[in-house]
Design a protein around this nucleic acid. Structure first.
Lengths: 135, 135
DNA sequence: GGTCAGCCTTCCAGATGCTGGAATGTATAT
DNA sequence: ATATACATTCCAGCATCTGGAAGGCTGACC
């Protein structure tokens, strides 16, 4: 199977697949002409990669997931630990962004948004107390 | 004022300040010895940069904010538009991450997390129907 | 055989926003 | 003279691709 078919079947761009090979996440065979030849096994790895990336796992986490997936003696505990770690960092990012959202809302709410140069957002960002532009 | 003082007064690392000069966000004077010399004006720009970065603006957005801040004929409408754009992208990211969170929670909840190799998370990521490992 | 489209390959560069480190120069104090 | 604590530039790397250039291979058509 050629790279464009592998791309179709995995949902990943061919460029990304080559990159994944570069960093050792997959090792497809080569045909005599130098073309990559994707086995079903390699395709499975690509599909796992595609799904895990969609689920927010980093490439290094994906590497561990691939290893666990290939290890028939794995403990599901280990997989779960990875997923929980990922979940925790997703939640941390959400919390952070929500704080950002609140602060931005506060700034935007104070700005008139008209033709006037006086702007509460710039005042907020430059540490100028609101109204200082007029003083 | 030397770069380390500028760093102290703006809250930005000296490295970051040099980088901001590299990409043209600031243009501090130079002394005879080649050292940068930060004026109050340049320091103001650094402070705006520091705050705007904390508020999630990209460096290109910061560039526009700096231009607006320096333009006494600006319309606060334009500043507000930038802030709202930023707010919208923050909200979009939150929504995306929340969807991710829900999907991850779903996966994690199904996984036993014990010594057994059977794992709902891997099943979910590989498209294997749950329970297929036992069949 | 020639030619063309449409694959494939490798390698280099760029995006974002810094951050670390090396090699070197300057200022200040003792 | 030396020690230190600054300063400078330049190069490389982080994560994760993505685009493009230059060139080779395949398969169909004439």
């Amino acid at each position: 199977m050629n790279i464009s078919d592998a791309a179709r079947h995995s949902g990943l761009p061919a460029k990304t697949i080559r990159y994944y090979e570069d960093i050792g996440l997959i090792t497809p065979e080569r045909r005599a002409n130098g073309y990559r030849d994707f086995s079903d096994q390699t395709l499975d790895r690509l599909r796992l990669l595609a799904q895990a990336r969609l689920m927010g796992f980093s490439l290094e986490e994906c590497r561990k997931l691939l290893a666990l997936n290939a290890d028939e003696h794995r403990a599901s505990r280990d997989v779960r630990a990875l997923a929980e770690q990922n979940l925790a960092s997703v939640r941390a990012k959400i919390t952070e962004l929500q704080a950002l959202e609140a602060r931005l809302e506060g700034l935007v709410a104070q700005c008139h948004g008209d033709d006037d140069p006086e702007c509460a957002i710039l005042d907020g960002l430059t540490g100028t107390a609101p109204g200082c532009a007029a003083r």
